[in-house]
Design a protein around this nucleic acid. Structure first.
Lengths: 126, 126
DNA sequence: CGCCTTCATCGATAGATGTCTATCCAGCTG
DNA sequence: CAGCTGGATAGACATCTATCGATGAAGGCG
């Protein structure tokens, strides 16, 4: 590195309590910790598939906010285990939730999770 | 090839020249098309890595909104080609932009892209 | 010109991921 | 009980990806 540039300090403080469950610090406001970045990345990774995006859209757009898995599997040209796998990824990320009622399992969105992700992406008013 | 214009169209249904339209394409409002889901998934996939999250955070938090690559490489325990790879992924997704000035290359955020993603995740007021 | 610094690209490789088939579990109904 | 259906799990496999070392391209400097 040439001497005419001042090196800046940018190792973020590895403070405790880092994670997605922490308060939603804007992404562009200040450097996030490694743990926070890992938590955010997991959620974004769950969103990083076209099938899962469409699954979320189908669930969110459905009247009542709940969709039976049987209705989701028929909406794709994929096998039932594949859809089940994608639903599991979304559920592991905390984006959706499921409930069994009798024979069928219903999935619904977790609005708080989506809100939190949206808040992270929003830049602070400056 | 710096600051290549070969970035993808973030939301295909937005049309060319639409720019940063504040009107959100709802993810939870109505089912999205396959093409829209694919475009969104690519952006989310770009965000689905802890290193890239931290890169975005470092760029966005830096004074002036620009960061030299040399400062980004020193912030991670990774090699320079790896950082360059991650920057390319973010740039291909339209999330960041680069500009060469003399010896150094500076990266900055593309706020419109982040705003659009945040808008997609925001649910319509019920 | 030659040399150095900065950054991008190439090629290889270990690990992650999406998809399938086969199978198992839970719940309903004869 | 047995049998059927909706959904999850297991295992296999092809593809993708994150990372590295090596190299190339662009620009500054003596």
């Amino acid at each position: 590195m040439q001497a005419s540039r001042a090196t800046l300090e940018l190792i973020p403080s590895a403070g405790p309590g880092a994670g997605l469950d922490a308060c939603s610090i804007p992404l562009v406001g200040e450097p996030v910790s490694e743990a926070t970045a890992a938590g955010l990345a997991q959620v974004f990774k769950a969103l990083g598939d076209p099938v899962r995006i469409r699954l979320l859209s189908l669930i969110g757009a459905h009247q009542g906010g709940e969709v039976c898995v049987c209705d989701l599997t028929t909406a794709f040209d994929l096998t039932q285990p594949t859809i089940s796998h994608h639903l599991k990824v979304l559920r592991s990320a905390g984006i959706i939730d499921s409930e069994r009622r009798g024979t069928w399992v219903y999935y619904r969105l977790v609005p708080a999770a989506l809100d939190r992700v949206a808040a992270v992406l929003s830049r602070p008013p400056s």
